[in-house]
Design a protein around this nucleic acid. Sequence first.
DNA 1: GCTTGACCTTCCCATCATTGGAAGGATTAC
DNA 2: GTAATCCTTCCAATGATGGGAAGGTCAAGC
Lengths: 151, 151
Amino acid sequence: MNIGQAAAASGVSAKMIRYYESIGLIPKTVRTESGYRVYSDSDVHTLRFIRRARDLGFSVEQIADLVSLWRDRERASKEVKRIALEHVGVLERKIEELQQMAGTLKHLARTCHGDGRPDCPIIEELASEAAQAPPLKTDAKFGLLGKATAR
Amino acid sequence: MNIGQAAAASGVSAKMIRYYESIGLIPKTVRTESGYRVYSDSDVHTLRFIRRARDLGFSVEQIADLVSLWRDRERASKEVKRIALEHVGVLERKIEELQQMAGTLKHLARTCHGDGRPDCPIIEELASEAAQAPPLKTDAKFGLLGKATAR
DNA sequence: GCTTGACCTTCCCATCATTGGAAGGATTAC
DNA sequence: GTAATCCTTCCAATGATGGGAAGGTCAAGC
């Protein structure tokens, strides 16, 4: 079948199939005389595998590992589990971070009238001085020069 | 002060300060004769405001709105609250999505031995046929042609 | 046989926020 | 004066995806 049909059957867009091929996640396919890519049911199966992993938030790099583990009949489930749990850890850290953000904002919104008055705790909090301005990445490769460099 | 000092004082990297200037999030600064950007304490205040909003996950576009609302003494808190709550909604949808992913993976990992044996429910689930392959975005602008186009 | 329309190809560009680096000029410390 | 550190602009890359142009191919209908 052609790429469009493989896309429809796998749920991975034709664009992405070509991209996955270009980065080596999937091998180069056979082509017709005129250059059309040709896919087998087995290829579609692989694409569907990839799509599921992607839907679970795995990165392309992780997916590459999972695909090769999938192909390896002798694999140890230990490795798969390790990748999965590592990813769970990443997801959970991200969740916590978002929850922190949402919590802060909800709290601020709760104390905001939300009417026509200009008073707004949300803005006030954002503008407040009481913030640590920690990990910085400036152009400077070393700390600030001297002391009274400011003007 | 110079950009490096403004960066250190605000927690926004020099790179990002220039970027924010280039996209118009912050106005162009005064320059010294030799072209160095010069920042005031007030500018640093703005940058810190921006950094906080960014830390709360607001997009640059939203931050631009928040900054202009901040500058507007006559603003209605209603608008600020609307932006904040809209963002909370986005965050919560994202959280739910990630929780779904993490939940599925944890469930799969729980049923995986994680030892040297090749049996692995995680891989099996990813490879299973039982998946809907719905919303697709192919190159094709219309559905598949005819019926027996495949070869 | 020829047109038409849907499909395929490659190539480039854009996203979003951020970082990295190169090449070169300015300033400061010593 | 020199070296270290800062600044400048410009270009590129990230990750995964979509948009679109320019052009070739295929199948159907006339």
